[in-house]
Design a binder for these strands. Structure first.
Lengths: 158, 158
DNA sequence: CTTCTTGCAAAGGTTTTGCAACAGT
DNA sequence: ACTGTTGCAAAACCTTTGCAAGAAG
């Protein structure tokens, strides 16, 4: 964790930005909740717990900065808020998301499933792929076990 | 085109909704611009040309209604506005998008490339897939031909 | 000093909602 | 009448921006 913060500090410095206390708090919250796909508001509230004086605009600015430096990734699951996650160190290695329609959880698929598909698309459509986003919407394993299929159907159709 | 409007009318009626003139205008605009991924504002302005008295809220309400009935699909390319497109009649047949980072165009891939990938995901993660979203971001064939690679790189990195 | 950064409040843009009027049955 | 629907304006919501004050070299 310390090393990753240090690395981010260096990345900032190499672009002439400082790791201010506010930025450090924001980065720490992101690191401590790495599996959670936090929104800006989520980050803001978590940062506030330890550094109550921070402003929401600063959180937005920090998230934008980290996005620009490609340290984090801004993602959008279609619920009206942007969410943020760390980028894989290896730029080639994308990952994907499983969004549960029942409980709202977001799980990750770390494997890149699209190697072959990308090749096909680049060739068939003469399109140079820079990035891709793949999200599956459905019912997660926890909800499949927990609730009856009736309950799930009701939630999906509304 | 007429038949499709008629079919939508029936779908509305079967859920006790009416095809009002405003809703008909909205549906017609969607049908006439099917390949364009219009935003609510886009639809509003196009509908206004022929029915100037319509309100923006009505367009939003109609789009939401059509979404609820699964006649159209609300999609989000991460640019801050929702866009709408018709759902494939055959529910199994998804399609995907190619978003150009240079010119902003959105092309479609009509083939479902993910049959095998979906099977793998459902098995490996015990996840019941209801839907998926796949978008490739990159450089479309028109921009690859048109501009120099330098220009493209500048646009991407900003 | 100079430049970057911050907090606050205000503004921006998109979408939703309250409500009285309207339309169709 | 009754229910669904509309238009308008206001509100809600997320995000960005202007600006004066603050921090750091």
């Amino acid at each position: 964790m310390k090393e990753r913060l240090e690395r981010i500090k260096q990345q900032l410095h190499s672009h002439n930005y400082k790791l201010t206390p506010q930025r450090e708090s924001t980065v720490m919250v992101l690191l401590e909740n790495e599996e959670d796909h936090l929104s800006a508001e989520d980050v803001y509230m978590l940062v506030k717990e330890k550094s109550p004086e921070i402003g929401l605009a600063t959180v937005y600015r920090t998230l934008e900065l980290l996005s620009d430096l490609k340290i984090i990734h801004k993602i959008n699951f279609g619920d009206g808020v942007a969410r943020y996650e760390f980028r894989a160190e290896d730029a080639e290695h994308h990952h994907h998301h499983l969004v549960c329609l029942n409980c709202g959880s977001v799980d990750e698929i770390m494997e890149d499933l699209l190697g072959e598909v990308e090749k096909q698309v680049e060739h068939d459509f003469d399109f140079k792929i820079v990035d891709h986003r793949l999200t599956f919407h459905g019912i997660c394993h926890r909800c499949k076990d927990k609730v009856s299929s009736e309950d799930v159907k009701v939630k999906i159709s509304e």
